[in-house]
Write a protein that binds this DNA or RNA. Structure first.
Lengths: 236, 236
DNA sequence: GTCGCCGTTTGATTCCGCGCAAACAACCGC
DNA sequence: GCGGTTGTTTGCGCGGAATCAAACGGCGAC
C-alpha cells in the first residue's frame, strides 16, 4: 500500500463533500488532516447499532448502507450513502448510541474523525458548524419525508417512493433511463419500503411488463421516471 | 388584553426552552426581544404544510400538533409539542417549505421569530447556533426512532410505542399512572401509529380489561407503564 | 330536560400482503 | 463444465387490519 500517493487523491475527493463546503483552503486542510482515511472491504461494518458514538465518518468512495433493527427484529434500510455524505454525525453530536449499523456495500474508502477531535473543531470554527447544521437539517428533512412515505398504506406507492429515493441516492443516468449501478437486491428495496421481497418481486414484474422499469439480478433501471413519480404521488 | 403584564410572565417561561439554554441574560433578552408573542385560539393554524418558511416558533403554553398529509391523502400526526419546544426550525434553516401543518390543539401562546431575523442572530451568536444544532439533532433522532417504530408490522407494538411517545411528550404523572391531560382522541393515536381508529379502539378495550390503561372520551391514562413498554419492546 | 353532535364501541365482511413452498436462473469457485 | 450458492419468480392459503354498518354514550347547546 502506498498511502502517500492515494492520500492526495482521497483529499481531492473528500473536500467536495458538504462538510467542506465553503471552507478556506487552510481550514479544509486542517479538517482533512484531523481525519483518518480508512479502507473498508465489502460487507465490513463501520459501526454497530447501539455502539457508543466514538467516530463520525464521510464516504469518499464506494457505498455505505445504514440499517436498523427494530424491536420486532425486523431490519430496515434507512439510507444508502455515496461519496461526500456524512454519517454518524447525529449520534456524535447528541452523544447517543448509533441508532443504526453502517456497512460497506462494496469496497469503500471513508474518512473518520474521532468524536472529541471533531467536536473541538466544531466549536472553534463557525463555518464547520454551519455546514454541520445544514447536513443535520437535511437529514431531518429526509427522515420526515420517510415517515410520510411509510405511513401510506398503498404498496405500489411505497415501492415507487423507495425506488425513486434509491435512484436519487445512488442512481446514474444512462441512455435508456436511470440505472442503479450498485448491487441492490429485492431485499434491499423491501427493507426500504417496509415490505417483503416477495411483494417487491411481484410488483417489479408487473412494472417490467409495462415498461416502467427493467430489472435483473441485483440490478435495476428506471425506464419511465415520470410514470413512477406519478405512482409515488398518487396521480396514477 | 394587557400585554405588558403578561409579557414578563411569557418571558419567564420562554427562556426555559432549549433554545435559550445556557445563554447569558443579555443574549437571552435580545433573543426574546426579537420574537413576537402570539396568542392562538384552539384549532388555529400557525402555518400550513407547503407554505414558505417565514417564521420559526416556540411553544410557550398550550399544545401544538404537527400533522402531515401524504401523497395518499392520509393524515399523519408527527408530534405534539408543549412549552419550550421549537418548531418550524428545520424548514427555516433549510429554506424548504414546511413539511407539515402546525395547529393549536388548545388555546396556546407561542413565540414567533421572522426567518431573516432569526438567521441573523444565529450567524452572530455561537451559543444560539449550538442550541439550534442540539435541537435539530434531537429532532432527527426522534424521527429515526419513529421510522423504526413504524416499520414494524405488529400492531400492538406500534400502538404501545405511539402511546408511550405521547406520554413522554404531553403526559403528566398522577396518582394511579401517567395521564394524558390534553384532549387526545382515538383518531390522534391512530394517526401517530399509522392505523385506523377502529383498531385503536379495539386494542385499548382489551388493554383496559387487562388493567394496562384506562381510557374514556378524549382522555387516557397509562396505568402500567412497564407492561406497556414491554409490549413496545417486544418482550411481551 | 331534551335534542343533537361527536367520539367511541362492536360486529360482519372484504381485501391484500405475508408466509411458506417449490421451481428457476444467474453467478461463483473449483 | 460442474455443482453449489444466492437471488428471483410464482402459486396458494391464511391472517389480520381495513372497511362498512350500526348502535351506544357522554357532553354541550338551547
Amino acid at each position: 500500500m502506498r498511502p502517500s500517493i492515494e492520500h492526495d487523491a482521497v483529499r481531492a475527493i473528500a473536500v467536495q463533500g458538504a462538510l467542506f463546503s465553503g471552507l478556506s483552503q487552510d481550514l479544509a486542510g486542517r479538517l482533512f488532516a484531523a481525519a483518518t482515511v480508512r479502507q473498508m472491504q465489502k460487507d465490513a461494518v463501520l459501526f454497530h447499532q447501539g455502539d457508543a458514538p466514538d467516530q463520525l465518518l464521510q464516504v469518499v468512495s464506494g457505498l455505505v448502507r445504514m440499517t436498523q433493527i427494530n424491536a420486532e427484529g425486523m431490519q430496515t434500510t434507512l439510507r444508502l450513502m455515496r461519496s461526500g455524505e456524512l454519517f454518524g454525525c447525529v449520534a456524535v453530536l447528541q452523544q447517543f448510541p448509533y441508532p443504526a449499523t453502517a456497512t460497506a456495500v462494496e469496497d469503500s474508502v471513508v474518512l473518520s474523525w474521532r468524536a472529541p477531535q471533531f467536536l473541538g473543531l466544531l466549536k472553534q470554527h463557525q463555518a464547520i458548524m454551519d455546514n454541520t447544521l445544514t447536513i443535520v437539517g437535511t437529514r431531518t428533512k429526509d427522515m420526515v419525508q420517510r415517515v410520510s412515505d411509510m405511513s401510506g398504506k398503498n404498496v405500489e406507492r411505497r415501492i415507487a417512493a423507495a425506488l425513486l429515493r434509491l435512484a436519487d441516492q445512488v442512481g446514474t443516468k444512462s441512455g435508456d433511463g436511470i440505472q442503479i449501478q450498485f448491487p441492490v437486491t429485492r431485499d434491499d428495496l423491501a427493507e426500504m419500503a417496509g415490505l417483503t421481497y416477495f411483494t417487491i418481486s411481484r410488483t417489479l414484474s408487473v412494472w417490467q411488463r409495462q415498461g416502467l422499469v427493467s430489472s435483473g439480478r441485483q440490478r435495476m433501471t428506471i425506464l419511465d421516471r415520470n410514470r413512477l413519480a406519478a405512482i409515488a404521488d398518487g396521480r396514477h
